[in-house]
Design a protein around this nucleic acid. Structure first.
Length: 417
RNA sequence: GUGAAUGUAGCUCAAUUUGGUAAGAGCACUGGACUGUGGCUCCAGAGGUUGGGGGUUCGAGGCCCCUCAUUCACCCCA
């Protein structure tokens, strides 16, 4: 074995060994099943999009667009970007294929890889996976509550407990305008005491100052969007809370919760878990009533969320389910080897998982292998069996063994017991 | 992107105060004891340029510099 390796997985990527891949597959199955129970349909979209799509939808002022995108040029000089989040692509597909023609309300989910160029940490990779759901066409808070419940339902199904839900409303462009005015008025006197990021945000994206951890204490008595909601937005928020209450979902209202993306309106929410350390977010989302119109479609209300699967997996209790094959065929000499190989393939054709040793190893080694593979049955073929046209069939767990005719139909019958 | 800690076999860890023989163990792997029956036990084998590069020194796994990776705290997202 080579002692020094030239190649490793690159920074911020994650390899999945068989055990881990199996866990992931299970998680993905749970998500698909649950989302389909809620009548959401799967969408798959490309790894990269025109850079412009993210600039326009995610927002020029967001950290994602400003410093975290993997952007490159193709040979035609077009600027492309590895998708850092899913909503822009979903909305693009919605518009590009006229999915609104399939009905006024369209509900989609996805499980996709995302890419962001950040300093990697545990549960935080440069290539990571998210599942997300988007409901396009419903202005109702019922839809927001449905989305939240679908996520909680999935967490529950995955045996993940202790996830907290924080909610807030940041209003619509109309009430936000009033809020921003008051907010800036309040801040301008104490601008000097804020951190540098907040000073910059003051002109580019003032609402995000609320989210600042450094200045949080200084901002206790600051105006918050919730206090400036217009009638419509206020009604919407109480409708949302009412629905959550009806579903028996616990939540806390975090008046400073604003989310990092530009397109949110009204409802915003996030899922957190204390086990994840200071960066405790598992997922989040909200309503984006303006985005579809902004991207050139008709004004269409929409709502959605995304959950980081790598983080979810950190919270998932590790299941130790020893998988095994049905049959391991052991052969004792050259001639039996060919018989055995034929039998293995017949077993596979009959729907059993089967394998044998191709290395001509000793019987002991082959039995050890059968054991390691967690085989339910071992079939031994040697000279004696060949002469009698039979095989030895051994149940590995109990050790009991009997001789049966070498005949796939009979063997199949025996394996069913 | 900023700051800090860590890096010894596939995995988990040793290597005696300030640097001193040819870097060890357990698990896992391969083979044997048991030449036609796995797990248990015992024995043996294989596996390391001590993350990589440079420097100091008679001598470096341990000290210094650089670099890479991981983890943690920031920024911020999932």
């Amino acid at each position: 074995m080579d002692s020094y390796l030239k190649f490793r997985n690159v920074r911020g990527t994650k390899d999945l060994l068989p055990e881990e891949a199996e866990l992931w597959r299970w998680v993905e199955e749970v998500i698909r099943k649950k989302m389909e129970d809620y009548n959401y349909q799967e969408l798959r979209f490309p790894t990269f999009e025109l850079t412009e799509l993210f600039k326009k939808s995610t927002g020029e002022d967001t950290d994602i667009v400003q410093k975290e995108m993997f952007t490159f040029k193709d040979k035609g000089g077009r600027s492309l970007t590895l998708k850092p989040e899913g909503t822009p692509s979903v909305v693009r597909m919605y518009l590009q294929y006229g999915l609104y023609n399939r009905g006024i309300l369209q509900k989609f989910y996805y499980i996709e890889r995302m890419f962001r160029q950040e300093k990697p940490q545990r549960g935080r990779y440069r290539e990571f996976r998210q599942f997300g759901a988007e409901a396009i066409g419903s202005p109702s808070p019922e839809t927001d509550a449905e989305l939240v419940r679908s996520a909680l339902d999935i967490f529950n199904e995955l045996n993940i407990h202790g996830i907290k839900l924080n909610i807030n409303s940041i209003g619509c462009p109309k009430c936000r305008e009033k809020f921003i005015r008051e907010f800036k008025k309040f801040l301008c006197s104490r601008l000097d005491s804020l951190c540098n990021d907040c000073k910059r945000r003051y002109s580019t994206n003032p609402m995000r100052i609320l989210d600042c951890k450094i200045d949080r204490e200084k901002l206790i008595d600051v105006p918050v969007p919730l206090d400036y909601l217009c009638d419509d937005c206020r009604k919407h928020f109480s409708g949302f809370k009412e629905r959550l209450g009806y579903l028996g979902i616990n939540y806390s209202i975090d008046k400073h919760l604003v989310r990092g993306l530009d397109y949110y309106t009204k409802t915003v929410f996030e899922f957190t878990h204390s086990k994840l350390g200071t960066k405790d977010e598992v997922g989040g989302g909200g309503r984006y009533d303006g985005l579809i119109g902004f991207l050139g479609g008709d004004e269409t209300p929409a709502s959605g969320y995304a959950v980081g699967l790598d983080r979810l997996l950190l919270l998932s209790p590790q299941r130790k389910e020893s998988r095994g094959i049905d049959v391991y065929v052991i052969t004792l000499d050259k001639a039996s080897d060919l018989t055995g190989w034929k039998l293995v393939n017949e077993l596979r054709d009959s729907g059993f998982s089967a394998d044998k040793d191709p290395l001509g190893r000793s019987m002991k080694a082959q039995f050890r292998e059968a054991d390691r593979q967690n085989a339910k049955w071992a079939i031994v073929i040697g000279e004696k069996e060949r002469e009698g046209g039979s095989v030895q069939l051994k149940r590995m767990e109990t050790g009991e063994q009997k001789e049966v005719p070498l005949n796939i139909t009979t063997i199949k019958e025996e394996l069913k017991c």
